[in-house]
Design a binder for these strands. Sequence first.
DNA 1: GCGGTTATCGTCAATAAGACGAGAAACGGG
DNA 2: CCCGTTTCTCGTCTTATTGACGATAACCGC
Lengths: 235, 235
Amino acid sequence: MVINPMAEYPPFAVTVDLVVLTVRADELCALLVRRGVPPYQDRWALPGGFVGIHEDLSDAAARELTEETGIPEPVGHLEQLGTYGDPERDPRGRVVTVAYLALLPDLPAPVAGTDAAAADWIPVSRVADAHLAFDHDVILADGLERARAKLEYTPLATAFCPPEFTIARLRTVYETVWGTRLDPRNFHRKVTTTPGFVEPVGRVTAGDRGRPARLYRRGSAELLHPPMLRPSAGA
Amino acid sequence: MVINPMAEYPPFAVTVDLVVLTVRADELCALLVRRGVPPYQDRWALPGGFVGIHEDLSDAAARELTEETGIPEPVGHLEQLGTYGDPERDPRGRVVTVAYLALLPDLPAPVAGTDAAAADWIPVSRVADAHLAFDHDVILADGLERARAKLEYTPLATAFCPPEFTIARLRTVYETVWGTRLDPRNFHRKVTTTPGFVEPVGRVTAGDRGRPARLYRRGSAELLHPPMLRPSAGA
DNA sequence: GCGGTTATCGTCAATAAGACGAGAAACGGG
DNA sequence: CCCGTTTCTCGTCTTATTGACGATAACCGC
């Protein structure tokens, strides 16, 4: 703020929007809010809001995520997805939005939005008809594609799981996000032999059907070597 | 522009910055400009500039690319890299920049910047000392990592090549960007058997040393299956 | 105990990758 | 014109990884 050349340059509003994904009841769901005010009143939209003049972009995204889900931050995963700045994307004026992608475990959270409108988890298979506000259809589609691709070469599937999870739980994450079925035995071998993907906790589950399963937590790897490739594209 | 709620929200300036990479003389080079005005006067920086109030972000990036390189657009590859909005990143005020990554063939282009300052290709191995202006070190590092990763699972190495190229040329691109050596025979087999990576033109080179090489052009695939994995990380 | 269910381990063939050998096709120098 | 040099292209062998699937282990309810 030493000098003020801003006056010479066009003023923009900057927002953050969130693609928040989770896996619940064998369905991939996105967190959506129903808009209470124009434009696009009563339409579903991605949660988001304006960035404060002294606020970092990632801080704004984390703040919105906490406000919308009610959960403290250090669960799951949050990363920048992309920035959308079509001059016509917001009828109110020139608004550039920085989209973030969040992957969360299935929370029993109330999802009581602080804003007036209602918030809810919507299965992505049923969002297509909804015609989200602004360009949020495109942003959501980009987020889904990013999530699907990242499961291939990063251990981020664990972000959809609670801190301790079974291999079967991790497999349903892959199956749900990719929309494919995976062989439980080959998946088990692949996950347990990829260095740094998961590490055993030492305990097992109890109370479920079938043989108890070992519990694992996320390993230290940031990248999977070799990657988990989607069967669809492989052939 | 129907309503004007912008007044209630903090005004930002929005810029685009470009990480422009090419392979020349067996070195990976980035296009940098020397700043002619404060702040960071006389320091190297990424090319870039302010986004017009009616201009799309990708249009602004393409415009800057053309201005800085003098080449018409439809060569190489241009994609959004990420957005950087630390409140302190620009001493002049709140400037959010949307970074783009461009991969170009080695152009005999004059690189005569329209702006006052000089522009030049700098080998990335020598940029580390330079301490670029603003947070451009970070943006460049992110662009390099993105480029290295994308060579693994996309055919974008072809963006560094002229429209028709040899397998050996493509191999030097991989070797230069990754900083490793690759076996020419295994590389040749891998590239020619990956569906959609390259397709033969039908002609061969002439005049070089050694046996003439077949010419290829880029194939139709957007993703490589199976991917080309870096040897470094593989073990 | 017995069938149902799920987890885990092992086997075998098919596929892909890494390490090389060797011939093909150009060049320049004697 | 023969020869060594260079570089491209194809082929072979060995090893690692994947995909398909059998078999056993360990729980549940009855």
